[in-house]
Design a protein around this nucleic acid. Sequence first.
DNA 1: GACTAAACGAGACGGTACGTCCTGTCTTCAC
DNA 2: GTGAAGACAGGACGTACCGTCTCGTTTAGTC
Lengths: 183, 183, 183, 183
Amino acid sequence: MVGRPRSEEARKAILRAALDLCARDGYQGVTMKGIAEAAGSGRQTVYRWWQTKAQVLLEALTDVLAEQVAPTPDSGDPRADLVAFLEQTFTLARGVAGQIVVGLMADAQSDPELSADLRARIIGPRRAALRAVLARGALPADVDLELAVDLVFGVMWYRLLNRHADVNEDLAEEMAALLARIR
Amino acid sequence: MVGRPRSEEARKAILRAALDLCARDGYQGVTMKGIAEAAGSGRQTVYRWWQTKAQVLLEALTDVLAEQVAPTPDSGDPRADLVAFLEQTFTLARGVAGQIVVGLMADAQSDPELSADLRARIIGPRRAALRAVLARGALPADVDLELAVDLVFGVMWYRLLNRHADVNEDLAEEMAALLARIR
Amino acid sequence: MVGRPRSEEARKAILRAALDLCARDGYQGVTMKGIAEAAGSGRQTVYRWWQTKAQVLLEALTDVLAEQVAPTPDSGDPRADLVAFLEQTFTLARGVAGQIVVGLMADAQSDPELSADLRARIIGPRRAALRAVLARGALPADVDLELAVDLVFGVMWYRLLNRHADVNEDLAEEMAALLARIR
Amino acid sequence: MVGRPRSEEARKAILRAALDLCARDGYQGVTMKGIAEAAGSGRQTVYRWWQTKAQVLLEALTDVLAEQVAPTPDSGDPRADLVAFLEQTFTLARGVAGQIVVGLMADAQSDPELSADLRARIIGPRRAALRAVLARGALPADVDLELAVDLVFGVMWYRLLNRHADVNEDLAEEMAALLARIR
DNA sequence: GACTAAACGAGACGGTACGTCCTGTCTTCAC
DNA sequence: GTGAAGACAGGACGTACCGTCTCGTTTAGTC
């Protein structure tokens, strides 16, 4: 026997509510209770499918990225592609998506499972995309691509977390210029 | 009337308790209630001097760093100094201090004042130290030092947060080598 | 069209489960969810035929009493009949049946319909039986039989509820003796 | 060290709220959450001093009875005293106090500790009072006083629980008359 | 033998009370 | 006036059950 099927409507309402609350109150201000109430669902319905607010927001984020992430640029000019990719990424990162990832990273410090999920579902794919862009010729062949990815995304997250400098088009250009100077 | 003077004993017990709890339960697991109980002090005594657990841990961290941070190396060999500095920094960052800073960064996302304090008291000084090391000749003169600092610390924090790679002596060497290739 | 007929099997399983759970967990511990699970039936199947656990247990109790209640004794000796009747009744009341009636009485305080059902299906018939026994000559003709019934069953329920004294063969004798002293 | 003393204000507000809710919604309708909200107190404050709503209502009832119970009548006429005592008692029992005791009795079925408390604090004292009245000459000396008390209070509770007949002045007279016929 | 329709098991749904934990404030006595 | 103790109002936690609903399946009649 099968039972009543899961309500796609409730799923969407919950993810939507989680995003809205995060945009309004910040990651820390989101609560499971608040999500359920804002979604007009029972709390058990949230807990049935997700154990923590981090899991809710991770899935909400996944859905958002699936919609909003543009295909990796491939114009034939490696440096232009890199700049374009970074501008895209930085724009996303300045929005709610960035806010959520920062919150998830924080929670992941005390939750190894979340840490792994976050890497597998969000961080990993973006690293792969950047690696592909860099591999097209923006760097000397013997530079460790993983380290180069760390360099680029490291700066981005460091600035987003510390807010000591902006993450914008200028940074995209500067990073591309700096990488171009590596011999 | 002046009243009873502040108890240095209580202050130390509270900071000590905060560190111990953070080491045992992680940043998220620390609570003001828990700190007070572990310190054998009243909760009001904690709240009287610090408003949040972030402030307690920030002060505890400041004390720890004041004890543990070695003077910036200055051997005459810019690259050796850089490697030495990074090894020191990475060792610290892998310990409780790193854990605390990560937690503080997370909380700072929703607390601008904490964000400013963190930059001013912890992040800033370390950036200045690294800048000084880099300025001694590890980089071409026209490279933006601030960006270079972002590069180095960006990689460190990115790896600490994401745990996709270690932050160790190898990274120190690799970073120094990579910077040396910038022309 | 008629549809699938009601499953007698499910009905029995539900009533059986309700009795078992009541014996194991007490009246308060019984839940509709628990009954359905213990009976291996769906919850809707329970709700389809009974609205509350009180109704389930009332029907279960009715079935139990239909099996277990012996015919009213009629030996020709009014006092012996009374004692025999009381002993029977007290034995029943000390078992699960008593536990259920007590629970139903409690629920009936906030449910007038249940109160009426309980009187009509359980309490009333027993009162009628006792009245018949008393009417055979155990009391002077001008004693209000209803009040006499209240007297006897009042003591029984009062002791069952308050547990300040046993409800046993001694009580049966004492009550019969006391009633015999009424002139 | 001593800590902040218990708030008599909160205690009263909670007991007051419990009584009001019981009068409005019936015993079953009272909840710990509802009590706390109606009293304008935190839920922890309720749980700190009482573990269950039964305990709250037991204490509330104790306070009410302490105020409302009149001294046992002692006019020299045993039967008149008995009637007066019963009228008093029945009046109380028809009010909120009776409703609460019925609810407590019900809960006590699955809570032996509550059962003992109820007997010790409420039922016992009233039994003692009735015993004293009966001992003044309303009954032959060799009638078991405990059984006589069970008789009187049994009828009262039985009727209150079952609602098959009123508990009023007529009953008081009838009971006194019946007891007077015991030889 | 295909069709109809109600009962069945399963289990998700929106809701509400549970009892616990922590927050930040307060009130007491001791130092 | 500081400190330990601990009660206070408040709110989120995660769980249990409520009563309803929506599935696919089963089990009788009809046609």
